[in-house]
Design a protein around this nucleic acid. Structure first.
Lengths: 207, 207
DNA sequence: GCATAAATACCAACCAGTTGGTATGTTTTA
DNA sequence: TAAAACATACCAACTGGTTGGTATTTATGC
């Protein structure tokens, strides 16, 4: 390693997390990114082979940043798995604060623009969302087992559903200019999970 | 009116609905759009003052196309307002077919990219989603009244929640490459609505 | 322990292609 | 014939990407 002064790569990735959530992937230019990171274009293409490569790296960086963030959150301490699931929802609701780019999801944003034209970026975003959902899925499955829930939906589909609600809530927040609508939607999600785990777990349950 | 052969404006707007849902707003270039519509750039800037103006017009065109489409759907025929709400959900689920750009929402897609940099487009998309949600809100409110539901959530928030779930489901569909995940999420939404209207409508209901 | 070779990290200037947008025609209809 | 509806040709600014160089660190030979 040489020129250890500041690490251009990390600065570029951090700038990407913010800027892509603000303007999207396509509208974020390499020059913009370099300016925001205080780095030259030469440095950019030294660390990333292309803009697409940065997009992939940004998605992976996003996973690397959010993973420990959620792993360290207090809701994991609950003994009851259902409490952990509801604690997760409450935590997601609590962090719906500040400006829109601060609480929205990089993976969801990039997916919209890249799912067709940049499969490699799409896959990186998909991995980010799915791996996050997987951390939830275990608690949901445990909660189902603990309460004897035998429904026609799976823990995996419920975990993904929570992500769908969150992603959709972010879009509404962007539409309405603030997190209030998103919080309402998360409240609906919480109510759903409460109700579905309160009902007796027989085969007649559900759709 | 002159040169009535095909109407370049409509062809451009129709091309925009497809292309923006495929590639997003930023990645859709004026040249691409003209090529897809079989029209020259001169025609484009004759009908639209700028690319942004096309974006706004595309959102309005989206509203003009989807409005009658949903208005003509069969679920409105049910006498019971709750059946109309559930019928709407079933209808949304049924049209989750084909390639991703065919069933996703233009407004939600454009919102992600333009909410910060193009407020005029964002507002047009917001109007599109909100006006669509408003058509649902009436039925939800009627269903609440009919069943004596007095909860701490409003018909408006429930209507927006359905849109959040749908928008989020579209993102998951883009991630997973098909509508199957989206359908699962819509199933969860239906289950929620069924349950929340089945519970007695007292003040203790809900979060 | 130290000179030196080899990487690594970065920079400034540049390049070819593309971008949204314009200026100026030509054709068609009312 | 006036004006709306389009076409052609063009442009300045910007796009992602490259080039050739310099500074700094690390590995190696002795």
């Amino acid at each position: 390693m040489a020129r250890r002064q500041g690490d251009a790569k990390t600065k570029l990735l951090d700038a990407a997390l913010t800027m892509i959530r603000e303007k999207g992937y396509s509208a974020t230019t390499v020059d913009d990114l370099c300016a925001a990171a205080g780095v030259t274009k030469g440095a950019f293409f030294h660390h990333f082979a292309s803009k697409e490569a940065l997009g992939i790296a940004a998605a992976e960086h996003w996973t690397a940043v959010t993973g420990p963030f959620f792993a360290a959150a207090p809701y994991h301490r609950h003994a009851d798995p259902l409490d952990r699931v509801l604690g997760y929802i409450d935590f997601r609701r609590a962090i719906l604060q500040g400006a829109v780019p601060e609480f929205t999801c990089l993976a969801g944003t990039m997916l919209q623009e890249t799912y067709d034209s940049h499969p490699a970026i799409r896959d990186a975003c998909e991995r980010s969302i799915s791996s996050h959902a997987a951390t939830l899925e275990a608690d949901i499955a445990a909660a189902m087992a603990a309460r004897g829930i035998a429904a026609d939906w799976t823990a995996a589909s419920m975990a993904l559903h929570t992500q769908a609600v969150l992603q959709g809530a972010f879009i509404l927040a962007k539409a309405k200019g603030g997190p209030a609508v998103a919080a309402d939607s998360v409240d609906h999600l919480r109510r759903y999970i409460e109700m579905i785990f309160a009902t007796p777990g027989d085969k007649e349950n559900g759709l």
